[in-house]
Write a protein that binds this DNA or RNA. Structure first.
Lengths: 183, 183
DNA sequence: AGTTTTCAGTTGCAACTCGCAACCTAGATA
DNA sequence: TATCTAGGTTGCGAGTTGCAACTGAAAACT
């Protein structure tokens, strides 16, 4: 497949484009979810997702290529191939859950989650996926600031501080100001 | 393994497909990120992202339609239109950050994050986006299980409990087993 | 052994989406 | 008035998706 198009990758000032390169594809997250649910074989994914064969083949290959799934021939039946999550794949769980929780919160159709995801220790439902401070406090978007590495640990003193929830474009410090100055 | 596997249920049992309906589109997350960075106007998104005009127009309309952005004519210049994040849009921050952190962790190219996202209170970098238990403990994928709502709060006793961390399909599968198999 | 079924694909083709460039319209600016 | 600017829309070629049919090898029946 000739990739004449990878504009996303050009904006490599944060990890987002890198993540989207793989997971931004149409079925990637659904396949990942199926993987978390324990599906391993081609035909399982096929009937579970209702995806076209060629697309599934292509997506699985891409996920394997990017190290999110491992492709291994089955021991007992050598026609079968097992697609299993790698550690890299498992590390997508927070992202997937966050997306899922968001979809659930705002989805039009009221989703009655028949099987509920719980903490195995006390069997109580898990809380929302959260952004944590270094000391474990839960942060909201109001609590986030953009700083240069050099300024780490220094409190804002009026001129250095950035009243913006910037998230990694590579813009210097104050994004709004930079934009304003640019015209 | 799961012999209790129930007939495959619809995929719509979890919020993921709902979330992907909007955010699964090719540029949605990049536009969202730009929104978090304070960009508001069409031409700003255009030059920041390098996206085609028609696609940007289409994506913005879809994001507005889904209530992630608000479209409001500018007061001072009536040609201009402001696209601003709604609360629903801001609620995507954990998902976006989780994705970004994953991309940063595994990205091929070493991203030197020049501006770092920090907790505004102490200006220390934020921690990883995490799955929390109801009491605030950070959970890994080993700690997650799938239960029926009726069984909430009851410890596993061998027959009722479901040793699974399925994430919405209704399948009953052990995520720990999947993880063990992954290596 | 010979036939059939299952698994994991590949190929061909129609429909759709993307990206680029050009064009359009209302509102500012000179 | 003419021109510029912001935010689109339209047309076209290329790329992507989905469906159905075909392949090839390894099990499973007969």
């Amino acid at each position: 497949m000739g990739d004449l198009r990878e504009p996303l990758k050009d904006l490599i000032e944060c990890g987002l484009p890198q993540a989207l390169e793989v997971m931004g594809e149409r079925w990637s997250f659904m396949i990942l979810r199926a993987g978390f649910n324990g599906l391993k074989h081609f035909e399982e994914f096929l009937s579970e997702l209702g995806i076209a064969r060629n697309i599934l083949s292509n997506r699985l290959a891409k996920l394997v290529e990017h190290g999110i799934l491992k492709r291994e021939p089955c021991a007992d039946d050598r026609r079968k191939i097992e697609y299993r999550l790698t550690e890299k794949g498992f590390d997508l769980l927070p992202a997937m859950l966050a997306l899922r929780q968001w979809g659930q919160k705002y989805g039009t159709e009221q989703v009655i989650e028949d099987p509920v995801l719980v903490d195995e220790r006390d069997r109580l439902p898990i809380g929302p996926v959260s952004i944590l401070a270094h000391d474990g406090r839960i942060l909201g978007h109001q609590d986030l600031w953009l700083t240069r590495p050099a300024d780490l640990g220094h409190r804002a003193d009026g001129s250095i501080a950035t009243p913006a929830a910037g998230l990694g474009t590579g813009d210097v410090v104050d994004i709004a100001a930079a934009k304003a100055a640019a015209r």
